[in-house]
């Protein structure tokens, strides 16, 4: 990387690493250290091709998601649920009207999310945190739309098993869809 590349790399990391770190930590189930490792590795890979990358953020995000899913393939599991910071801290959701019950439910949800497999969690982060449509999630993770749909469905079901406190909640749209897509397909001769 030449001097110009180094400058643009530093500028990118300085301006975007906090936002990318949020995603990385969520992908790691709230583990700050693991999230930093994940982001560091993704940025090291991006640095190797820096001057050939057109859209750095999209590129780094794609590496983040795929790396995380490949960790799952290595059967990497967390033995203990640990959160880098206590679930509070005056974030945008710490408004005064927030009831303790709702806050507690989010803590329960966080703990349950941390117990999902990396693939299940990645799909939920992409769908519900990044608000990406299923087709984009599929493209990013390198799988079919049907797989994204079924993984979302299974992940939400798994959350209910992990946290019985969620039983009172209504089903998500994704849960009402079958885990496999049995809709008719037009077959052309």
């Amino acid at each position: 990387m030449n001097a110009e590349g180094l400058d643009s790399f530093r500028e990118f990391v300085d301006s975007r690493s906090s936002a990318l770190l949020k995603t990385a930590v969520l992908l790691c189930g709230g583990d700050q250290h693991a999230g930093e490792d994940l982001l560091q590795n993704a940025l090291v890979k991006a640095a190797g091709k820096w001057q050939r990358i057109d859209e750095p953020e999209a590129y780094v995000r794609r590496i983040l998601y795929r790396q995380q899913v490949s960790r799952w393939r290595l059967k990497w599991r967390r033995r203990e649920v640990s959160v880098a910071e206590p679930p509070e801290g005056g974030g945008r959701f710490a408004h005064s009207g927030d009831t303790a019950a709702a806050a507690e439910l989010r803590v329960v949800m966080r703990e349950a999310l941390a117990k999902l497999t990396a693939r299940q969690r990645s799909v939920l982060v992409l769908r519900y945190f990044e608000d990406l449509p299923e087709a984009d999630v599929a493209r990013l993770l390198g799988c079919s739309v049907g797989t994204v749909r079924s993984t979302t469905h299974r992940s939400l079901s798994r959350l209910r098993v992990l946290a019985p406190e969620l039983a009172a909640l209504g089903p998500a749209d994704a849960e009402e869809q079958p885990s496999r897509d049995y809709s008719t397909v037009e077959v052309r001769p």
């Binding site: 770190l21 949020k22 995603t23 880098a84 679930p87 959701f93 939920l124 519900y128």
Partner: peptide, 15 residues
């Protein structure tokens, strides 16, 4: 899920 993830993200330390 959305609320929990966003809350968690809002609490992250900057890099």
């Amino acid at each position: 899920v959305r609320d929990a993830l966003r809350e968690q993200a809002a609490e992250q330390h900057p890099a």
